[in-house]
Simulated scan of single mutants.
Amino acid sequence: MRWWIGARRARFLVPTALAAFLIPLLAVQNIRVALPSLIGSPQIALTLFVPVPLLACLMHILESRLPAPEDSGVRPVDRYDAGLVAVLSAAALGCALLVTALGGTEDAAASGRNVLFLAGLMLLGRAAFGPAAVLVPVAWLVLVVGIGFRGNVARLWTVVPQSAHDVPAAVVSLLVFGAGVTTLIFVPRKAL
């Protein structure tokens, strides 16, 4: 286990990833900007984009592997990686809920839910695209901004701009996250 933590540089990168999530989350609460879209100019909360640095750190952690020993070894490295993803995502969700409880907006809590959804998308994309899948969450956000709004109302399929109390968005986020973690465990490394 120690060699795995060292190979992933988890002692340094996990706190860095959480700081890369928490600092912007605190900085951009209550800020909405009009972004150009194909169907108007919706007012979008900047907290929508806060999970991106955390996801970039997460992909860096997952890709800082030692291919030869990990592919030939008998240790369950994929399960270790899945545990790390779950812990980091749960910590980000906890930070977001803490910010909301300490007087933040509900956008902060929604940002924590979005970490789960976008991490799941990234892990699903990683099975097909490898490390380039770090762009899958960014592509989803661009798609949402481009065609995901009708006026200032988010369409149902967009998931990420929905309110923190939106139950279908929470369920979809958990399902996508679970599918991504399952893919991380069961898709062979050699296929990546």
Rank of each mutant, 00 (worst) to 15 (best):
M1L: 13
M1E: 09
W4G: 03
I5N: 10
G6P: 08
R8D: 09
R8T: 11
A10T: 06
A10N: 02
A10M: 01
R11N: 11
L13Y: 08
T16P: 08
T16A: 15
T16Y: 14
A17K: 03
L18N: 05
A20W: 00
L22D: 07
L22A: 14
I23F: 09
L26H: 01
A27R: 09
A27W: 06
A27Q: 10
V28L: 12
N30F: 12
V33C: 11
I39G: 14
S41N: 09
P42Y: 01
I44Y: 00
I44M: 05
L48W: 01
L48E: 07
P53Y: 10
P53V: 12
I61F: 09
L62S: 08
L66P: 10
P69W: 02
E70L: 06
D71R: 15
D71Y: 10
D71V: 12
D71I: 13
S72H: 14
G73M: 07
V77Q: 04
D78K: 14
D81N: 14
L84D: 07
V87Y: 09
L88E: 06
A90E: 05
A91K: 06
A92H: 00
A92D: 02
A96H: 00
L97Q: 11
V99A: 00
T100D: 07
A101H: 07
A101D: 10
G104A: 01
A108T: 01
R113F: 04
V115E: 00
V115H: 00
L116G: 03
L118H: 02
L118Q: 08
L118A: 05
L118K: 07
A119N: 06
L123N: 03
L124T: 01
A128I: 15
A128Y: 15
F129L: 15
F129H: 10
F129Q: 09
G130K: 13
G130A: 13
G130D: 12
A133P: 11
V134P: 14
V134A: 12
L135I: 09
V136Y: 08
P137H: 04
V138F: 11
L143F: 13
V144A: 05
V145L: 10
G146P: 05
I147E: 04
F149H: 10
R150K: 14
G151D: 11
G151F: 10
N152V: 09
W157Q: 06
V159E: 00
V160D: 04
S163F: 08
S163T: 13
A164E: 02
A164R: 05
A164W: 04
D166G: 03
D166T: 02
V167Q: 06
P168C: 03
A170G: 11
S173E: 01
S173K: 00
S173D: 02
S173M: 06
L174M: 11
L174K: 01
V176K: 06
V181N: 03
T183F: 13
L184F: 04
L184R: 12
L184S: 05
I185S: 07
I185W: 04
R189H: 13
R189Y: 09
K190R: 15
A191M: 15
L192P: 13
